[in-house]
Design a protein around this nucleic acid. Structure first.
Length: 524
RNA sequence: GCCGCUGUAGCUCAGUUGGUUAGAGCACCAGAUUGUGGAUCUGGGGGUCGCCCGUUCGAGCCGGGCCAGCGGUACCA
């Protein structure tokens, strides 16, 4: 009977669902990306802020834990005073808490940017995690559409700063009010229709996911998905569906002949496509009045959107970059006016060669109700949020992420354990010269140390054994050159004899020789 | 939450109508080579065949339940 079976107490090493580790190469690239975004936000005058990873649940608003589902959507727990706390699920709710708490001390409008991980307790999917990073900019304390226009321009500038070429992205803009106006026009106004309005909004939000035929089913009786599951529809009748779809598509890229001088086209707003046709946000907006049936909210929406498009046009952001799109909906009971979505428009191929669309990498809008939860006076606010992880994934597909692995450290081999002091000193000399270097701190023999240096991606190793000591020299082995030469040799003893790609210098010349080698490698 | 599919080594997978001690490739470790990363050869570690119950003389394989993963869908600040 052998008792070699692993003990039951041995813990299985595993990652919680929806979480992931970020390793060296990605972490470096991510840091660079965050720095780039910060620069743009700083340039717009936003101030950095950091808030904690969890808050009192009531401060976050929604998803108050109830007895049967205390963790629906958010991660919540009770502290020792039995107060409910929740992990933040975005950066906006904590901002609202911060502004309300420091209201008198903050300048209005208050402009802040913030990045950090947020947490959602929901089913993870491809590219969708339970911990992920957002990067937000918000302006609190003004209802001026100029603040919304600025969010769109900020989004465009940020994507370009990350080297996404103009034309490969679009900032889509709409307004919750304009949809409210249209729905009012088809008889869905009033509190008795709240549930149906939400169902309609949910459906419109899926316009980029499903073809028109499926959207129509969802607006009507319902739809059966490919696994056979049935989704109940919004229950609109044929006429209502037709008007709604006409509206959504009336605004879908409407081009004008250049020769028909259109009274509403503002200089800078037009976008001329490959065929020489011109599209204009403002002209498109003007054509929508039949759908709004002189609805008050509808008119207000058109006014706000016109302002946004005028300002962005005057600043040189045309319809090609910031574009009206009535299918943008976003958060249901959250946004109160203009809404934005940053979309990448280029196709990409994934590992298996399939074409994938990245779609939305950020979004935002006006949320006039959030801060006023804490105060009696109204506090209008607007903001934009970048989904950092998704954008990172898109950028690496685009090849905009520095793909080169950071060079590993120069490794000083430990040839004689009695003389670690000498090796440590050499490592320090190299570091003092600004070279990334380390003494091997394991216990293995020389061969294993060579393997270690190879795996670390070291440019070279430093060898100081008995032979070198006798001559007052050190040997520098160029691992990159060695790897190249190894391809030409098939016999091991020959490989060993040749000792390729190494040379010796006197001990005092170590740093200069390594520096020279690194320069040569950098050129090659 | 609902629907569907899939669970065999760290990874990718084989495993006959149910039949001895469950295999391969890759990866990992060691030796050949006690001072040299590659290649080669030799050896080694690693598995409750997702878990439990049942059928059977006998289950990785058949049946039921559960769990996990993936996909779709719903919800989504």
């Amino acid at each position: 009977m052998s008792d070699k079976k692993p003990s039951k107490s041995q813990v299985k090493a595993r990652l919680p669902k929806g979480m992931r580790d970020v390793e060296a190469q990605e972490l470096r690239a991510l840091k660079h990306m965050l720095d780039t975004i910060s620069e743009v936000y700083e340039r717009y005058g936003f101030e950095p802020l950091d808030t904690p990873a969890f808050e009192y649940t009531d401060a976050l608003g929604k998803f108050l834990p109830d007895t049967d589902r205390p963790n629906e959507g958010v991660f919540s727990f009770q502290d020792e005073d039995e107060q409910w706390v929740s992990m933040r699920y975005d950066l906006t709710a904590p901002l609202a808490r911060y502004v309300a708490q420091n209201f008198d001390a903050t300048p209005k409008p208050f402009r802040r940017y913030q990045t950090g991980y947020v947490y959602r307790n929901e089913k993870p999917g491809p590219g969708r995690f339970r911990q992920f990073m957002q990067f937000d900019a918000d302006t609190v304390g003004t209802a001026n559409p100029a603040a919304d226009a600025e969010m769109c321009m900020l989004a465009a500038d940020t994507l370009e700063a990350l080297r996404i070429p103009r034309g490969s992205y679009v900032i889509k803009v709409s307004s919750r009010k304009i949809l409210d106006g249209v729905m009012e026009g088809i008889g869905l106004g009033g509190p008795q229709n709240t549930a149906r309005r939400l169902a309609v909004l949910r459906t419109i939000d899926k316009a980029d996911k499903f073809p028109l035929s499926e959207i129509k089913k969802l607006l009507g009786t319902g739809r059966i998905d490919e696994s056979g599951d049935f989704t109940k529809g919004a229950g609109l009748d044929e006429t209502q569906i037709k008007i709604l779809c006409d509206f959504l598509f009336a605004a879908e890229i409407k081009f004008y002949d250049l020769n028909d001088a259109h009274p509403y086209i503002v200089s800078g707003d037009e976008y001329i496509n490959d065929c020489g046709w011109t599209y204009s946000n403002i002209a498109t907006l003007a054509s929508l009045s039949p759908f709004l049936q002189s609805s008050k909210v509808g008119e207000a929406a058109v006014y706000e959107l016109e302002k946004i498009f005028q300002l962005s046009a005057i600043s040189g952001y045309g319809s090609k970059r910031i574009r009206f799109d009535p299918t943008v909906v976003r958060g249901l009971e959250y946004y109160t006016g203009p809404v934005f979505e940053a979309e990448l428009t280029f196709p990409a191929t994934d590992e298996s060669g399939q074409t994938v669309r990245f779609g939305s990498v950020g979004g935002g809008g006006r949320y006039d109700g959030l801060v006023s939860r804490f105060r009696s006076q109204p506090v209008p606010a607007t903001g934009f949020s970048i989904g950092v992880s998704r954008l990172y994934a898109a950028l690496s597909h685009l090849g905009k992420i520095g793909a080169a692995k950071a060079a590993g450290p120069v490794v000083v081999l430990v040839m004689d354990k009695a003389r670690v002091g000498d090796y440590q000193r050499m490592a320090k000399q190299l570091r003092d010269a600004g070279i990334r270097a380390e003494m091997y701190v394991g216990d293995a023999g020389m061969k294993a140390q060579m393997k270690y240096a190879d795996k670390r991606g070291s440019p070279c190793v430093i060898i100081l054994g008995e032979d070198e000591r006798a001559k007052g020299e050190v040997t520098i082995k160029d691992l990159l050159e060695g790897a190249r030469l190894s391809g030409e040799i098939s016999d091991h003893s020959e490989w060993k004899e040749a000792r390729p790609a190494q040379f010796s210098v006197s001990e005092g010349d170590l740093v200069a020789a390594v520096q020279k080698l690194l320069e040569q490698q950098a050129k090659a």
